[in-house]
Amino acid sequence: MKLKLPRILLLACSIALLGATITSCKKKQSDADIKAAVETALKAEPMSTVTMVDVKDGVVTISGECKDDMCKASCEKTAAAVKGVKSVVNNLTVAAPPPPPTIAADDPLTSAVNDALKAFPGVSATVKDGIISVTGKIAKADRQKLMMALQALNPKKVDVTGLSNN
């Protein structure tokens, strides 16, 4: 117990110190200092793309393009955590998400699959809801060629669990 006491004291001290540092942010930092610090902090942010940083009276404005909402929020958090920052105006825009994959309709897909399978005797396939289910036997060396041909037809997925190597 005697030994533990100083440790607890130390802990209490450091908590008090930490609290003091947080509340004692009153110590003025110039806007230029803050700008440099925010820029450094954002550079370390792996997700952040180019962002513009402006500081006026401790209020930071960040702008630029982020790839998603998560990046936008985390950049704001990073900027807000920089010493001397009073508040953050988040003008980051989120890049439009890539268009969803095009899935071919079953009828054209079925005929395209049949065309592609002409080169692979012993292999057959059915198409339902964009999913190509392949069955039969194929030489292992030909499997890649078959997959290249089928995956180029805009299927939802290619299921080859019914296809064995011969």
Partner: peptide, 21 residues
Amino acid sequence: WDLYEKIDPDYASGDLVMNIN
């Protein structure tokens, strides 16, 4: 495609549709 085959032998997982034109 060789990388694809290395990661997913026999393309058995059915969780990738790769279309490199």
